[in-house]
């Protein structure tokens, strides 16, 4: 699958962060490298996290900006980072951090695939065992929705 929104370069299977803040920085960094957001997006991500946690369940967190921070988004993109050691996300264990920059709903197609994959615990297991970014992308692409 080729998606403009989630390119291979935006997927990491060996994340470096060990705390929630670092993980958000890592996600933001990938989005900046992809040319999707400006530096101003990180404070918005942190602000959003302070109001309501983006922990979704099943080891997944999806940090993103606030409704007001949409100006900081240049184009739609996602980041996908896997952490072997769970990160403490407001008391929940998180192995997968998917950073989101979305405008005009261009990212919804891939995001909904991610959602359906993560709602199935077997698929989450497969993602935990995936060998590299290609394999992750394959698992996410297989979803038929």
């Amino acid at each position: 699958m080729t998606s403009q929104v989630l390119q291979l370069a935006q997927i990491r299977t060996e994340g470096e962060a060990t705390t929630k803040l670092e993980a958000m920085r890592e996600a933001h960094g990938i989005l900046v490298d992809a040319g999707a957001v400006t530096a101003a997006y990180l404070p918005a991500m942190i602000e959003r996290e302070e109001s309501v946690s983006t922990y979704m369940g099943n080891f997944l967190a999806i940090p993103h900006g606030t409704n007001e921070s949409k100006e900081a988004i240049l184009k739609s993109a996602l980041s996908f980072v896997r952490y072997a050691q769970p990160i403490d996300w407001d008391g929940n264990p998180v192995h997968f951090v998917v950073g989101i920059a979305g405008v005009e709903n261009e990212h919804l197609d891939i995001l909904s695939k991610i959602a359906i994959v993560f709602s199935d615990e077997d698929e989450v297991d497969a993602l935990l065992k995936a060998g590299g970014p290609e394999e992750v992308l394959d698992i996410l692409s297989e979803v038929n929705n």
Binding site: R48, S51, V52, T54, M56, I62, H64, G65, T66, N67, S69, K70, I100, G102, N105, H107, L108, L111, S112, K113, I114, A115, I116, F118, S119, N145
Partner: peptide, 18 residues
């Protein structure tokens, strides 16, 4: 519904739609 309408609500909607 969520605050920005681009993240968690989109994922929740996908799961339920499925």
């Amino acid at each position: 519904a969520c605050d920005a309408g681009m993240g968690s609500s989109a994922m929740g909607a996908s799961v339920l739609r499925n």
